[in-house]
Amino acid sequence: MRIGFAEILVILGVALLVLGPDKMPYYAKKLGEALKEFKKVSSEATKDIRESIIEPLEEAQKSLKEAMEPITGLQKDIQSEVTDIKKSFKNLGKPSKEAPKAEEMNTEAQAEETPAPAEEETSTMERTAVSEEAETAQSAQ
């Protein structure tokens, strides 16, 4: 709350009416001394509070921050590693942009080298039939 010039004039006018013109300078001097003493006490209290409470807290805070720096750095490192791992798990099973081309080449090469499953079954059946005929022929002799 601020007191403006108009409010001060009203206060002085009321004080002049209540106290009278002869006692007014005496009480004004006492009021000035009281304000001066109040400022002095409040500045000393502020200084004491700063010295006894704020400065030790700032020093403790500074040492805590210094102690937390390695932990904070470690936390950032771990967080980046966790993020990388999450990304790799997220992309797990999804083909990369270069992988499909290599996989297609490998798949085509394997298809040319290995017979189709139906061909394998047919050749296996033929071998079994041939071996059965040979056994029958041997047992007949």
Rank of each mutant, 00 (worst) to 15 (best):
M1P: 00
M1W: 10
I3F: 03
I3G: 01
G4W: 00
G4H: 09
F5L: 10
A6P: 01
A6E: 15
I8A: 01
L9G: 06
V10H: 09
L12M: 11
A15Y: 06
L17P: 00
L17K: 08
L17T: 09
L17G: 11
V18C: 05
V18R: 10
P21M: 03
P21L: 00
K23L: 15
K23D: 11
K23F: 12
M24V: 07
M24Y: 03
P25F: 01
P25W: 02
Y26T: 13
Y27H: 04
Y27S: 04
A28I: 08
K29P: 03
K30H: 10
G32Q: 09
E33P: 01
E33K: 04
A34M: 07
K39Y: 12
K39C: 06
K39G: 08
V41N: 10
S42C: 06
S42M: 12
K47M: 09
I49V: 07
R50Q: 10
S52C: 04
S52A: 10
I53K: 12
I54R: 11
E55W: 09
E55M: 13
P56Y: 04
P56N: 08
L57I: 03
L57R: 08
L57K: 07
E59R: 14
A60H: 07
A60S: 13
A60K: 15
Q61C: 06
Q61N: 14
K62M: 01
S63K: 15
K65A: 13
A67D: 12
A67H: 08
M68H: 08
M68F: 14
E69W: 05
P70L: 04
P70A: 05
T72F: 06
L74V: 04
L74Q: 12
Q75P: 00
D77A: 11
D77C: 05
D77E: 15
I78H: 07
S80A: 06
E81S: 05
V82M: 02
T83Y: 05
K87N: 02
S88L: 13
S88F: 03
L92S: 03
L92H: 01
G93Y: 00
K94D: 04
P95G: 02
S96I: 04
S96P: 02
E98R: 05
K101H: 09
K101Q: 14
A102Q: 07
E103P: 01
E103A: 15
E104K: 15
M105H: 07
N106K: 14
T107E: 13
E108V: 12
E108L: 15
A109P: 02
A109N: 09
Q110A: 15
E113G: 03
A116Q: 07
P117Q: 10
A118P: 02
E120K: 13
E121F: 08
E121K: 04
T122R: 06
S123L: 13
S123M: 07
T124P: 00
T124Y: 08
M125R: 14
E126S: 02
R127Q: 14
A129L: 15
V130L: 12
V130K: 15
V130P: 02
E133G: 05
T136D: 12
Q138S: 11
A140W: 09
Q141P: 03
Q141T: 07
